[in-house]
Design a protein around this nucleic acid. Structure first.
Lengths: 208, 208
DNA sequence: TTTTAAACATACCGTTCGGTCTGTTTCAGA
DNA sequence: TCTGAAACAGACCGAACGGTATGTTTAAAA
């Protein structure tokens, strides 16, 4: 693909992403995207076979960006701290800064948007959503396992439970954040979760 | 309104609710509803001024049912237990049974569906969503405040924080539940939350 | 039994939808 | 400089859309 073509493609994807995060996928027509992106119908269908194809490509495009960002934050935390608990704390605080950033306020989670319209998509799209969410969870699980192995928690709890909790808190926080128009809510859930972690692990950490 | 008319109205609302929870609001056309409910266009537009009017009426209808169910569970818990902590535990376990009921598996939260398509609705709809979520939160807050007043928590925590956390966990759990096709996930979050509450309040409860 | 309004049925209308088709422009490589 | 394919532009199409207009049925009150 030529550089110019690639640019147009990305421009369409970015515009579609913005519109879909505002109105949902079913609420976003091809014409809406054309108008907002100021590209022609010919250009659109040159890059995407159909509207459904856009959904699939957009999801992959977003997931790639998303996982990259996730891994970058994780790598940064691991580079700065040796202790898995410190790494986790650092990762979460970085995430809190990112998610409540008022200059580019988050309109929610794209996976949630696709999930709540799941019946209109093919199985490859819905399974991609599930796979990406599972990848998120898997990274959390590994780190929580390291923490649990080093610092026995005050109450029996599994890495999977903790992972599922923080992912649920973030997803739910994003829903409330948008419903209430308050960009701080998701970060607050992450903070509260860290307080819970402290309650679980503070004793073993002090003992060590 | 006649009994027959009221029946048709409710049938349309129930059908629309089912379809919208599957495909989203923008993904559900009036014709889709007519076909699924086996009613004519004349019947539909006799009961609802427009498609947007259906959205508004449906939301109010659902919110009324929802809050009633919520209050019923709360009243039952309060009738069976004197202690606010016991009431809360009872309420949450009842909720867990309800939400993971496999005979009528929950496809998610209608407020979340409307929230993630919020740009397509008028302000009266979006503010109704926010108001209903706030009502939920308020009921939780009052109960948590009673608990905190009676049993000083191990760490400083506000009733608002605890309320926001359980609501986020449920909203997020419902997203994951649908994404993964696992009806147990939301109940698991509620359980985990109760474990956190135990960690917070067990000491003061034993002392009392 | 007659009257009347609510409750419904259906043909129809203008618009928007996703998608196609045909043609033009751009630009890297021969 | 020429060539060909990629990149785009925009008119056009049939289907589906939300909504209306007009008529028929139902059922309770007079």
């Amino acid at each position: 693909m030529s550089k110019r073509g690639e640019l147009t493609r990305e421009h369409i994807l970015a515009t579609a992403k913005r519109l879909i995060m505002e109105n949902g996928f079913a609420g976003t027509s091809v014409d809406d995207i054309l108008k907002a992106a100021e590209v022609s119908k010919g250009a659109f269908f040159h890059h995407f076979k159909s509207r459904a194809d856009l959904a699939s490509k957009l999801l992959r495009w977003h997931a790639a960006q998303d996982i990259t960002m996730f891994r970058t934050l994780a790598a940064e935390a691991e580079a700065t701290h040796d202790d898995p608990y410190d790494q986790l704390t650092r990762f979460l605080t970085d995430f809190e800064t990112y998610i409540s950033n008022p200059t580019e306020p988050s309109r929610g989670c794209m996976y949630a948007v696709f999930t709540y319209e799941s019946e209109v998509f093919d199985e490859d799209v819905t399974s991609l959503v599930a796979d990406t969410l599972r990848e998120w969870s898997a990274i959390y699980i590994r780190k929580f396992q390291e923490v649990i192995d080093r610092y026995p928690p005050r109450r029996p709890v599994s890495a999977k439970q903790l992972s599922e909790m923080i992912v649920s808190l973030i997803e739910g926080g994003l829903v409330l954040q948008r419903a209430f128009g308050n960009t701080q809510i998701t970060a607050r859930q992450s903070e509260h979760f860290r307080a819970y972690l402290d309650l679980l692990f503070a004793d073993s950490r002090e003992a060590a």
